[in-house]
Amino acid sequence: MLKLDVLNLAKRFGARKVFESINFSLTPGESIAIVGPNGSGKSTLLRLIIGLNIPTKGKVVFSDDGEPLEFDAYRRRLALVSPYLSLYGSLTGKENLRFFAKVNGDNISDQEIDSLLAQVGLQGRGEDFVSAYSSGMLQRLKYAVALAKNAEILMLDEPSANLDESGKEAVSDIIESRRKNSILIIATNEKEEYALAERQCQLGQ
């Protein structure tokens, strides 16, 4: 079984302490909300968990049946939706989906693409260039890309950013559909999103 262990994690930027002694473990079906005010290190913690930044202290271990996984092994099983993650503006929504699926090693059919776009409320907009998308549409497309990966680890940084009410409902539906079989990590400072996860990790205290 897939498992994430965050062990005594700490991060400093020069003399500034961002956070320290962060500990939690998650297996599929479990979820955690990383909460705290702006600048408390929520996105930094997500990047550390993914393995894109180096912690000052502590470590993050992804394992499968007790065997530690290398970056490439857990990267394939991980999807991220974040304001810092952009998609290709010079490609259409469908081209983005097809490209990300293909480099991840998956063949995706036109029907599957249409179904994903419908799931995030972008039906009929798949042929538009992403550069012409509004920020809310872009956020929806990021969810479609994450869903196409069918990941076991779903990391959502500010999950409702730029979304209208129907977008927020779509996100709730996505989270509910994935909750049972995925490790879910949500970084947010929106109080109503705290309830999307079972546990909380408070930063900035």
Binding site: L52, Y84, S86
Partner: peptide, 9 residues
Amino acid sequence: SGTALALKL
């Protein structure tokens, strides 16, 4: 353009 992160993952 910020697409490097998506590509890395």
